[in-house]
Design a protein around this nucleic acid. Sequence first.
RNA 1: GGAGAGGUGGCUGAGUGGUCGAAAGCGAACGACUCGAAAUCGUUUGAUGGUUAAUACUGUCCGUGGGUUCGAAUCCCACCCUCUCCGCCA
Length: 428
Amino acid sequence: MLDQRLVRENPNLIARELSRRGVKVDLTPLQKIAQQQRDIEEERSNLQAEGNLIGKTVGQKIKSGIDPKSDAIAELRIQGNKIKKKVSLLEEQEKSISEKLKEKLLSFPNIPSENCPDGNSEENNQEKWCWGNPRKEENLLEHWEIADRLNLFDTERSTKIAQSRFVTLLNQGARLERALINFMLDLHTEKGYKEVLPPVLVNTASLIGSGQLPKFAEESFRCSEDDLWLTPTAEVPLTSLHREEIIPSDQLPLRYVAYSPCFRREAGSYGRDTRGLIRLHQFNKVELYWFVHPEESKTAHIQLTKDAEAVLQKLELPYRVIELCTGDLGFSASRTFDLEVWLPGAKTFREISSCSICDDFQARRSSIRVKEGKTTRLIHTLNGSGLAVGRTMAALLENGQQSDGSIAIPKALVPYFGSSHLHPKCNN
RNA sequence: GGAGAGGUGGCUGAGUGGUCGAAAGCGAACGACUCGAAAUCGUUUGAUGGUUAAUACUGUCCGUGGGUUCGAAUCCCACCCUCUCCGCCA
């Protein structure tokens, strides 16, 4: 959420910055509303002060022995009633204006960082650096073809259980998924991340807090009878872990790692990535999340990205780092590095992690602050996948292909998986 | 699902109509004592909005939303949440 004060005092700055994202808004009407809200608030609070004084006076007089039924007190009561009527009228106006204002404020995306390159689409994203040597042989299979041969998962039967875009992992496939989750959690906790296993049903306030609502309601699954939603990413429960808290500064940074299944409706992606593990309504993800002091968030962002990269490096998966341009930024982010893993079968790089800094955007929505001397200050939040598990499996399968049809498991994963290869023969 | 209890500041917890943002304790900060620390003593210590150059002034907040009243943490109504016991259950 944007700062209400900034809307009042510097709406041009907001309009300019949002236009970098391709969001064209005229903020003058909103500024007017904000101004109006403040004017009414002032008038109302002055009246309330007057009313409070009358209340106190009556109390004092009665205490000092004046007859409650005397004319003097009756006069005060009449005055009090007059004020009350005025106040409730103003309150009504103020309420509807504040609601309008809040609704608008919640619908604006974050202001991009000054470091975020300008651009209006994917094409303006910048490649920052690469790691590893991508395999470029011609005859490599795509991951679902491999999975078919090795009997690692079943998508067709999953439609009996649920719908399309769900997967049921089988045999070594299920085992590999489990190994990956454990491997990732261990890797991050060894670096000092605190492990969290949050609820996957989250309430509306949590989704507003991290920025999924009110704008992206159609992306999440909802349990409408309970004010609960299936979490689209662990970023949501992790943000709410400290919602409406003031964190002592010596506790920062707080670094969390959480495994969670993630649920997305993938509205508007009909026909895209219909095969395999790339785009599902339910997938597993290990998420990294930082609460940091505002002064330290920029360096933290680099570190978070490195921590996500470490997973790919340990798994010996070639990847590149892409900095998103302003036009491609997510709603809450002010700057984002995407990690894209190389899929030699599909002959393409695929997003496997998105490492974002949100500045105080989520902190303001969620009211998460740090004590600084006598006052408080909004903290900064960062998040990144470390990593999306299903896509990691896809990458492992495609990158590990051997000429004999087996799949080599990276050394770091062997202790978790329990075997150095996936063999077509030992698949059941 | 049934029965009961309860939601007050960072925490524990008092407060059942009148200067109550709220006792007390704990915690925290500062000071004194000390070579230093502990203990002790003293002082300070909620959040958020507005006006202001600032001192300062002022609004709101006792789960949430309504209502009664000149005045509500306190009374009334609705809702939400938490806890305990019973039932069911991984």
